[in-house]
Simulated scan of single mutants.
Amino acid sequence: MTVFEISATGRNRTGRTRVARPTLAAFTPAGLLPYALPLTVLVLWQGLTSIGVISDRVMPAPTAVLTAFYDQIVSGDLVRDIGISTGRALAGLLVGGVIGLALGIANGVSRLSEQLTDTTLQMLRTIPHLAMIPLVILWFGIGEESKLFLTALGVLFPVYLNTYHGVRNVDRDLIEMGRIYGMSRRTLFRKVVLPGALPSIFVGLRYALGIMWLTLIVSESIAASSGIGHMANEAREFMMTDVVVLSLLIYAGLGKLADVISRALERRALAWNPAYR
C-alpha cells in the first residue's frame, strides 16, 4: 500500500486498514448551504419573469429553459453537441496541458532551459489568444484544428506558470536532505520535487479548465458547424432566447463538473499532505 492510500484510508487501533465510508454530510444544512444562493436566484428569476418584470425576449423563465432542454434531449441534438464540445475541450486540455507541464518542469529544474525558452513564452503569453482567431481561421480554416489550437494555447500558459512556480518553490532543505541520503537526480525529482510542486500544478489545472471552456465558447460561436456554441449561435439567428440561455447553463454545468473532478483528483493525489486531509 502506498503512502497515498494509507493517508486516505487511515488505520484503526488493530493496525488494519480502515476504509472511509460515505457520510450524509452533504445533506445537512451546512452541506446544502452552497446551493442556497443559486436556488434563491432561480426562484427570483422565475418570479420576476412570471409577473412580467423581466421580458421573455430578455431572459426567458426557467420553466421555458427547462422545456427547451427537454426538447433538445428528445431530438438527440443536445447529447450530440455536448459530446462534441467535451471531446474538443479534453483534446485541447491534453495537448496544451502536456506541453505546459513539460515546459514548466524543464524550466523549473534547468537554468539553461529557462534561459532558452522562458522569455519567449512570457512574450507569447501577453498576446490574447482569442485575438488570434482571424489568423487561426486563415491558417486552419473552421475545422477542428482551429479549435484544438486555440484551446491548447489557452490552457498551456496557466499550466506552465503554475508548474514552473511549484517546482521552483519546493523546500530547498528537503532537496538537500535527499541529496545527503544519496538519492539520484531521478529519485529526488520523483520523491521530493514533483510531490512538492503538485499543489501549484493543480491550481494551474483548475485555472486552465476555466480558460478551456471560455476559449471553446468563443471558438464554437464563431467558427463551428457543431457543438454547444454552434447550437447557441444558431438559436440566436432564430431569436430562440431559451436555447441560448440553455447553452450558457450547460457550459456552466460542464465547467463546474470539471472543477469538481479536478478537486477530487487533487484531494486524492495530495492525501499525504496535512492541508488536504
Rank of each mutant, 00 (worst) to 15 (best):
T67W: 10
W45K: 11
I82S: 03
R57L: 12
T49N: 11
T67R: 13
A61S: 13
I51Q: 13
L66A: 08
I84Y: 08
V95Q: 09
L78Y: 00
L37R: 02
L90W: 04
I84V: 07
D77W: 00
P62M: 08
G47I: 07
G47D: 06
L42D: 05
Y35F: 14
I51S: 10
I51R: 03
L48T: 06
I54Q: 12
R80L: 02
D71Y: 02
V41R: 11
P62L: 11
A89M: 14
I73G: 04
S85F: 06
M59N: 10
R80C: 00
L48N: 09
G97L: 10
G76S: 08
A89K: 02
T40M: 14
I84T: 11
I73D: 03
A36V: 11
V43A: 14
D56G: 05
V41A: 12
R88D: 14
T86E: 01
Y70L: 07
L39D: 00
L78A: 00
S50A: 13
V74C: 04
G76M: 01
S55R: 10
A36C: 15
I51G: 09
T67C: 12
T63E: 09
F69T: 05
G47F: 08
V43L: 15
V65R: 00
V43Y: 07
S50R: 10
S85R: 10
G52Q: 13
S85C: 07
T40F: 15
G52W: 13
L78E: 00
D77Q: 13
G83R: 03
L37I: 09
L90F: 14
R88F: 01
Q72S: 08
I82A: 03
G87W: 10
S50W: 14
M59G: 14
G47N: 02
D71R: 01
A91Q: 02
L37S: 09
G96R: 00
T67L: 12
L93V: 00
S75Y: 06
P60Y: 12
R57T: 12
G96D: 05
A89D: 08
A36Q: 12
R80P: 03
P62R: 03
A91G: 05
P60S: 14
T49A: 10
D71L: 06
I84C: 06
R88W: 10
A36N: 12
L48C: 12
A36H: 06
Q72L: 01
S55L: 11
L44T: 04
A36L: 12
G52D: 14
G76K: 02
L48H: 08
L90K: 05
Y70W: 03
V43S: 15
A61C: 13
G83P: 05
M59F: 15
L90H: 05
L48S: 03
V53Q: 15
P60D: 13
G97W: 04
R88M: 10
L44E: 14
L48Y: 08
